[in-house]
Simulated assay, not measured.
Amino acid sequence: MRPSVHRFLRDPALPFVEYRQARDSRACYHPHSHPALSVGLVDGGASELTLENLPPQALGAGDVVVIPPGRVHRCNPRPGSGWSYRMLYLRDDWFGALAQESPALRADAFPLWRADPALYAAVDVMLRASLSEAEPDAREQQLLALLSLLAQEQGLPQREPAPDWLQALCNAIRKDCASPWPLPELARRAGVSRFHLIRQFQRHQGQTPHAYLLDCRINIARQRLRQPVTLAELALELGFSDQSHFQRAFRQRVAATPEQYRSRAD
């Protein structure tokens, strides 16, 4: 059995893009979300994708997967087996600027998954071109062409808008995710019961407030790990009880340790 490999690629010339390649991965994720549009190709093996409240979807070689920003999901290999895939993460500020230029380009205008050899081949060509040694402008144009191709497919139904109080609470957590945010305090700020708070969080965010808080911290950590900061300093900065807690939460959501993520390979 070959050892699994996880590689990350980041280019300062295209700071809004992150690329990940996994080979024979047996790593399992906790439910999590990304503040980025995620485009994936399944190259081999089999896995199961769960997205919020939708039924689980079996994935196999040749499938194309798109996860909208902020959608809670997990994609894990079948028990006792591994799978290989490539993911492209397009940062929310870059994609958001595109969506403002073209209102029809919604994050939920893309297919969630599609078993289509022709689409897989086309996305594969564009993804490779976007990672080539060509000029940054040419590579960015390939990314736009990729989005244009995917947006022609049938997209997901739009999410039901969250109540104003829940949107405000999520904004507050994102702005100060180093704070502990205990449940009684969240309920007091929102003016609702703890039970109603949990129910509405599950309905609109697909996870509990605590899981949402950890997601926010790990997404910040992915950016901060590109800078010269120690893991102990980062754990303290993000509000974790200790470095071990930070490393465990990071691995559960990224399927790599912070050190592996920083070094781009395991």
Rank of each mutant, 00 (worst) to 15 (best):
A151R: 13
A46K: 07
P111G: 08
A46T: 07
G80K: 10
L98R: 13
A61R: 08
D215Q: 02
R78G: 08
S241P: 00
A115E: 04
Y89A: 09
E18L: 12
A221T: 04
D108C: 09
V123W: 02
E160M: 09
C177P: 01
L9G: 01
G70D: 11
L88K: 00
Q260H: 13
Q158K: 08
R26V: 07
Y120S: 02
E153G: 11
F201M: 15
L14I: 05
F195N: 03
V5M: 09
A122Y: 02
E237W: 08
A232T: 11
R78T: 12
P136W: 12
E133Q: 14
V66S: 01
D242G: 00
L197M: 13
L225Q: 05
E160D: 14
R248H: 07
L105K: 09
L41Y: 02
L127K: 13
D164I: 04
A162P: 05
E160F: 04
F201S: 11
S84I: 04
R188S: 10
L54I: 00
Q227A: 08
Q142A: 14
K175F: 07
S148G: 15
A235S: 02
T50H: 09
E160L: 14
R78E: 09
D176R: 13
L169G: 05
P77H: 10
L183G: 02
L166R: 06
Y85A: 12
A36N: 04
G62A: 03
L213A: 00
R226M: 04
D176P: 03
L236K: 11
R226I: 01
L197K: 05
Q223W: 13
S102V: 11
P77D: 10
T50E: 15
R71I: 00
A256V: 05
R128A: 15
A129E: 15
T50P: 01
F250H: 05
A151Q: 13
P12F: 06
P3V: 13
W113Q: 06
A107V: 11
R74H: 14
H196Y: 15
L54A: 12
R26G: 10
A104C: 00
P79T: 05
L143Q: 15
W181L: 01
W83D: 08
Q252F: 04
Y120N: 10
L156E: 14
P180L: 12
M1I: 12
P12Q: 05
R226D: 13
G70Y: 02
D93P: 10
R199Y: 08
A129L: 07
Y89C: 01
L54D: 09
L90T: 09
A221P: 03
Q21T: 13
W165A: 06
R248W: 04
R251P: 00
W94D: 10
H6Y: 13
S4M: 04
L49I: 06
Q57T: 03
S81Y: 06
L146G: 08
L49Y: 04
R262H: 06
A118W: 03
H210M: 03
P161V: 12
A187Y: 03
R264F: 09
D24P: 00
P69W: 07
V66D: 08
D92G: 04
